[in-house]
Write a protein that binds this DNA or RNA. Sequence first.
DNA 1: ACACTAACGGCACTCAGTGCCACCGAACAA
DNA 2: TTGTTCGGTGGCACTGAGTGCCGTTAGTGT
Lengths: 196, 196
Amino acid sequence: MTQTGTAPAGDARARVERAALELFALRGFDAVTTEEVADAAGISRRTFFRHHPTKADAVWGDFARHVARLAELLRNTDPARPILAAVCRAYVDVNDYGPDDLPVLRQRMRLILTEPALQAHSQLRYAEIDRVVAEYVARRTGEAPTDLLPRLVGASTRAAAMTAFAVWLTDDGLSLREQLTRAFDELTEGFPSLRR
Amino acid sequence: MTQTGTAPAGDARARVERAALELFALRGFDAVTTEEVADAAGISRRTFFRHHPTKADAVWGDFARHVARLAELLRNTDPARPILAAVCRAYVDVNDYGPDDLPVLRQRMRLILTEPALQAHSQLRYAEIDRVVAEYVARRTGEAPTDLLPRLVGASTRAAAMTAFAVWLTDDGLSLREQLTRAFDELTEGFPSLRR
DNA sequence: ACACTAACGGCACTCAGTGCCACCGAACAA
DNA sequence: TTGTTCGGTGGCACTGAGTGCCGTTAGTGT
């Protein structure tokens, strides 16, 4: 596809994502049909489903690149660093958004963590992250990625990250990076705040 | 439906769940229509959706009771026991299935952890558990259930439990209780196996 | 015998997702 | 210019999940 002269048309994907985010935030995920999103983006319903395999996928902008960046961060980690610290560090780094991206990120995460349909769908995206982390841990420890420890690190660090996101959305005190760090510290230290 | 005298007809729910579990395990969740499940259970498609709000819900047998049992176990916990230990203990106890229930449990969990649609739907069920645990932690610590620590305990212990389930399904070495204990030990001790 | 109620089945409808096909514009070849 | 190929697109029809509405039926009480 080469940009014809008239409309930019280059990134119909970006237009769809923007339209989806705004419509879903405004009226709720279930109350907006895919046809309305497609119309708002200036494409047909059929083309919408060519770009995004699912209505829910429209709110996840290039998530594959996000996962790839996390994998690369882990690949480039100093082998001397403890495994768990490396994973947490990569998690924080991959979520280091600039101030300009924060409004969109808030809108996106609020939808994902609030709308039941998106909350359910997110599990499929999270599974990709979990797998990347589990494979990294498996590489470091020599275990199989399907063994308990690699899977456990993947699942629990992801749980911590999503908890940090949820708290960041509601509480306005701390930055996302600070909330992530707080959560990871609790997790890696065995929940020191609970031991009196 | 007119079999008043013949079939017990007492709990059509149980028949639906059995039929759904078998059909989904046999041919895959997406390849089986709700009408087929309804037919196999001897009810109409309309009645199927009266019993189960969703096709996916048919595989979760009385999950509300499961959550209620967990909440009760937590409520009856000795206040002297450390918070995290209490949560893990309750998790192990609520998942103490008898040998007769194990085959059905394996089938159910294999579906939930394998089929993408069920994997996604599971997030909505897990959220109920997370909330119960978070409320317990909040009661013990005096925080709000929406604060970071209560939420983090809920999300991470659940992640550990589901990881234990997944490993239990594939590895045949250890019992479910042992896998759960292994996972919880790693989590509560700050992943000792990763500190060399 | 009569009314009341709760559960059921049938029907029609919306909407997500998919397969099929026809169309159009760009690039390329003769 | 003419013809051909090709990737992106839109239209159309179809399946299947989920829902609202309504008529029917079984069970219960009086």
